[in-house]
Amino acid sequence: MSLIESLFGFLILALSHFGKLALIALGLAVIFGIMGIINFAHGEFILVGAYTTAMGYHAGFPLLLAIFVGGLAAGIFGLIVERLIIQHLYDRLIETLVATWGVSLIVIQLVRIQFGGTFAGIHTPLGSIQYGAFSASTYRIALAGAAIVLFASTYAIFMYTRYGLHSRAAMQNKEMAQCLGIPTKRVYMKTFFFGSVLSGIAGGLIAPTVSLTPDMGTNVLVEAFVTVIVGGANVIVGTSLAALSLGIIQAPASMLFGTLGGYLALLITTVLLIRVLPEGLTGVVE
């Protein structure tokens, strides 16, 4: 492989890692950024999105429509979880966290009982691109584009809608927002729904690139968590910067040492980074 080819390969790989990290972290980051809570069942929201997308796809829906349905299914699931559990636990950070862990356990087991160890996946569309000795799946690169579209939409929703205004106010200062008559509880409910939809869409988008198993949520959880820690509380800028820099770190590590090497590089980067920047990249941005 020539230098140009390796460089090209590296760029493509970094791009596809960025795409995946950004997608799977966005829903988690929205809920964390606005509500300050970490959803431990995040992986299972992605799972709900992915499984629903696969079901829709196998039922004959076009992939994009199936992904949309997957996002909606995860959103409804999120709404149920919020109404039944989360809303009773606001201001009790760690309780929320462990409660969502409970949700995750239940979902994993229900999926295993209902669908067994694996679920019929979706063939990766769009074929692959070739450059010299290097080849990569076009779809994985397209995911990076999808991630950018989703981030831009999220940004637009926060900047230009009433909900966005309210949620930014609630994030800055909850008491103040309440005094101004902003219904923070409703804002939180909508945020949880919104974050769940984003996770579901991410699940649908990555469904063609992973095997659909009950623990697929756990598998993406590590990367999503790490991205959010590195990013910090700033949803758009922090998370996208984190996904980008972690993608650049993960790509060569996994190229040289395999998937596990990529994960280890992520973990080590994160642990070293928090020693210097406990608030993540958000701390640098602000």
């Binding site: 970490i38 431990f40 950070l93 760690i94 966290l97 756990t218 959880l221 590590v222 968590f225 790490v226 959010v228 820690i229 994960y263 280890l264 973990l267 994160t270 642990v271 070293l272 928090i274 020693r275 210097v276 406990p278």
Partner: peptide, 22 residues
Amino acid sequence: FMFYGQVSGLYVAIITLVVTLM
């Protein structure tokens, strides 16, 4: 790394779980 970096309790929760999964 966690305690001398003085990260928040929330991050301690996530990092310890991530390390376990690793």
